[in-house]
Amino acid sequence: MSSPGSVWYTRCPAPTPLSIAYQLGWLDKKFLNAGVAVRSIRDSKDPSVRQSHFTHALDYSFRQGGNIPPIWARSGGRETRVVGITTTDEFQAIIALPGSGIAVAKDLKGRRIGVPRKPNSDVVDFQRATALKGIVSALSLGGLDHRDVELVYLDTNEGDLIERGNGAFLGLKRRYPYGDELLALASGKIDAFFVKGAEGIVLANQIGAVVVAEFGFHPDPTIRINNGTPRPLTVDARFLDEHFDLVVDLVATVAGVGDWATSNPDTAVRFIANEIGVGADAVWAANGRDVYRHLALKLDQDQIAAFDHFKRFLLDWSFIPADFDVFGWIDGRPLEAALRRSAA
């Protein structure tokens, strides 16, 4: 079958081997050798193309980042396949202001917890889902559940798309999260809210927040599972079916970042920081001192089980339209072929 001519890719501002492979120039080089151009979904001027960051609607496309959008797209009937998974744990916490009287999770009982919400979104409200999963996890550590607190929804009409060069970002790549929650906390509208990752730890540090519950590295995977843990590498089924060898090239290239990062820890963390738009110290703090050791691409059964658990959470909270077989969503053939190639 002839070459597709070009392929589309997208990644989230997060620690992923796909992002590092892109920054190293490995993706362009690998596909160029096959006569295929690599085009960025996020950088497209066409809004319908950029929307595929969430919908995975484009044929001949691949994605690695938060798992809520691909779970939502698959639940809605989009034929995609998970060809690799990266598990990089990260800071996740509920924070409050000093003097609030909230010090530990059980102190949240009867309190107001802010939840971001986009009521007019055309795609899954992944920020609301992420916050709610974090809140549920934190409350469980204090023997509570969501009925023991008041969830205060903070509505915003800000767009979903990740756009570069927007004047409203004051020259930065994107708007950082938690602005609405911070304003609500400062004004007394809420008592606490959820944060995660490097952006979350920077914000908590900046305001001298009380970390009420931190669970990003909790030993129970059902506690720490969230949008960013784990992060799947997904491809559309047509790409996989028609150009299996190209998908193997993709998987092999992304998988190679794991060993590279182990040998180049400082550079790997610098690349992660550049992708997120923070300092390297924030990545070390949020993801741990061995973050560079957790950029491998695998398909372990515990990773797949984590997706299944989180899918059930999203279904129970009505974030996805229908159930589906997570284990049937996985296609291990490209990774197996890439590993055989590496061993040879």
Rank of each mutant, 00 (worst) to 15 (best):
R111G: 09
W284M: 02
E90A: 15
R289G: 12
A186R: 14
R11H: 02
P265C: 06
A273G: 10
R341A: 15
L246K: 01
L151C: 07
F217L: 12
G66I: 11
T130H: 02
L141E: 10
L27F: 01
F313T: 13
P265V: 10
G143L: 06
T253D: 06
P70G: 08
R289W: 05
Q64S: 12
D122N: 14
F193Q: 08
V210K: 00
P13F: 08
R312I: 09
S75E: 09
S44Y: 03
E214H: 02
T267R: 03
R111D: 05
D300V: 11
A286Q: 04
V104N: 03
R111Y: 08
V212I: 14
R111N: 13
L97A: 13
A73D: 07
A73E: 02
R175P: 08
V152G: 08
D241A: 15
A282V: 07
G35H: 03
I68H: 01
A268F: 03
G328F: 00
L144T: 15
K311S: 14
G101T: 12
N226G: 12
P119I: 15
G179P: 08
I304A: 08
D220F: 04
G110S: 05
R39T: 12
R50H: 08
Y176E: 10
G77C: 00
T55C: 01
R164N: 12
G65E: 06
T10E: 13
R312D: 13
E158T: 14
I41W: 06
P4W: 00
F319D: 04
K30M: 07
E199V: 14
A338R: 03
I95Q: 01
G114P: 07
Q127T: 14
V247Q: 01
L151S: 03
Y60V: 12
P221A: 10
V202L: 09
D300M: 06
E242A: 11
G65C: 06
V235W: 02
S75V: 12
E214D: 09
R238L: 04
A131K: 01
V123R: 00
H56L: 07
I71N: 05
G197F: 04
G208W: 05
G167T: 14
P230E: 09
D107H: 03
T267S: 10
P98M: 09
S6E: 15
V104C: 08
S52I: 05
V210N: 07
T156P: 02
T86H: 03
K196Q: 15
I85F: 03
